[in-house]
Amino acid sequence: MTSPDQDPPATLSDGVVHWLTNGTRNERFIDNIFAEMCNRLQQVGIPLKRSTLHILIQHPQWLGARFKWSDGAREAETSLVDFDVRGRSEYIGSAANEIQDGASEVRERLGRDPALGRKHALYDEMRANGLTDYVAWPLYHTLGKQHLITFATDRPGGFDDAHIAALKNLLPVLALVSEIRIKNRLARTLLETYVGAHAGQLILAGATRRGTGTTVRAAIMICDLREFTRISDNWPRDDVIDLLNDYFDAMSEPIARHGGEILKFIGDGLLAIFPLSEPNACANLLHAVTEAKAAMVALNERNSATSRAPLNYGIGVHVGDVMYGNIGSSSRLDFTVIGPAVNMASRLEALTKQVGRPVLLSRDFAEQVEPAFELEHVGQYEVRGFSDPIELFAFHG
């Protein structure tokens, strides 16, 4: 046994450990580090044929991600894992299942009689591909977070003791290196989820001081669900949440597809911008509105099958300069847009009720898209907070 004053015994992977510790500081992405690590393990004589790294992520759509390296690959193959995976056969009885249930190691000698081994489709697949040995270990991060790494070989007889010792030798350093990258990605994911991709990038780049920001010329879109108060007062809570999620999916996904950024959800409303740094921003906004309208029609058809009343909405659209940046208290900030152009979009959304058109555009915005889009001129209207009447146009998509 090694005493506390002695160096640990040398292993085949010592050079790879040194590289993980000292040679990866400029690499941002764990999948690239993982693939390079696997190739380096081969170079030092470990007969690696296949390896996977499974990580849990905090994402609204995905439970985790899997990086898979195969012999000869320079890059890892990435796949996302949904939240329902733990109820499916691909997970039940797998190494990931055993590790999640508390196992500190899963070793499957694939070269022996399959009748003597574990029963799972993955083991059958690896045997069919000529693999002879498979080992999986938990990869421990701080605060009880646990991920998974696996290694497999096609060497006759499988891994020997020196190979296993070398692979185990990697785990503590790989845990540290991977945790840093995963937390960096997690920070980006959380910011993208809660404030949007562009705002998230600015915040990560250091735009966190109150009052800082920039002037952006953008098309502004404000959308609001009609009669939400009545719905929330009369429907069960879970149904209301499902309704809002479906409604926001119908509206938000087209916005994201066409280059818009949703800055906030306000109850049953949303605020989105399409920066004019993109030459087709205004046209893209109307394409998003058209697709959102179709998605709402489909949603209402589904809801009618359960006797739910159709959902209606109002959208106000304007274009102009907005202040884009940090606003709030000394300890709690919001990254958003403010300015008269935002106020105008909000007033137009409110006017959709009075005018009886679900989508209203200002003259300033209409001039950006005519004659490519067919618009209905609906006249001039007084707008609260603005001295002169505003010329309005309706868009029917």
Rank of each mutant, 00 (worst) to 15 (best):
R347F: 09
A341L: 03
R357Q: 14
R357F: 09
Y313R: 01
E370M: 14
V342W: 04
I327H: 01
G325W: 02
A350G: 15
E370V: 13
I338P: 05
N343V: 01
L348Q: 04
R347Y: 06
K353T: 14
A341F: 01
I315A: 02
N312T: 14
V342L: 10
K353F: 08
A366M: 05
F335G: 03
S330L: 12
V369Y: 01
V378C: 07
L311I: 14
S329Q: 08
N343E: 07
G379W: 07
E367C: 00
A309Y: 11
I327Q: 02
V342I: 05
N326C: 06
S329T: 15
Q368S: 09
V322G: 04
S346R: 11
P358W: 02
V355H: 11
D334I: 01
A366C: 03
G379H: 10
A309F: 09
P310G: 10
G356W: 04
T352Y: 04
V355D: 07
E370D: 00
P371D: 01
V369D: 00
G328Q: 04
Y313Q: 05
V359L: 06
G339P: 10
T352S: 04
A366W: 03
R308A: 15
G328S: 08
P358Q: 07
I327R: 00
L361P: 03
V359Q: 10
R357H: 15
D321H: 12
A366Q: 01
A345R: 12
T336G: 09
V342D: 02
S362H: 11
E376H: 06
V337D: 07
G316P: 05
G320F: 00
G320R: 00
V342K: 09
D364V: 05
R363Q: 11
M344Q: 15
P371L: 03
P371N: 02
S330M: 08
P310N: 11
V319N: 03
V322L: 06
R363I: 02
I338K: 09
P310C: 09
G316N: 05
L360E: 03
S362G: 11
L311R: 00
L333C: 09
S346M: 08
E374Q: 12
S307Q: 13
F373A: 06
R347M: 08
D334Y: 02
S307P: 01
H377M: 09
D364R: 15
I315D: 02
L375F: 06
N343P: 12
Q354S: 11
R332D: 04
A341P: 13
S362L: 05
P371R: 01
D364P: 09
H318I: 00
A305W: 11
P358I: 01
R332N: 10
Q380C: 13
V359W: 06
R332V: 05
G328I: 08
R357S: 12
V359D: 03
F365L: 15
G316M: 02
G379D: 06
P340T: 07
L311K: 00
L348V: 08
G379L: 13
T352A: 03
A345D: 10
L351V: 05
A305M: 14
F335V: 07
Y313E: 10
G316T: 03
M323W: 11
Q380F: 13
D334K: 00
E367Q: 08
V359H: 07
V369P: 02
M344R: 14
N343G: 11
R347Q: 06
R363S: 06
L361H: 03
S362M: 08
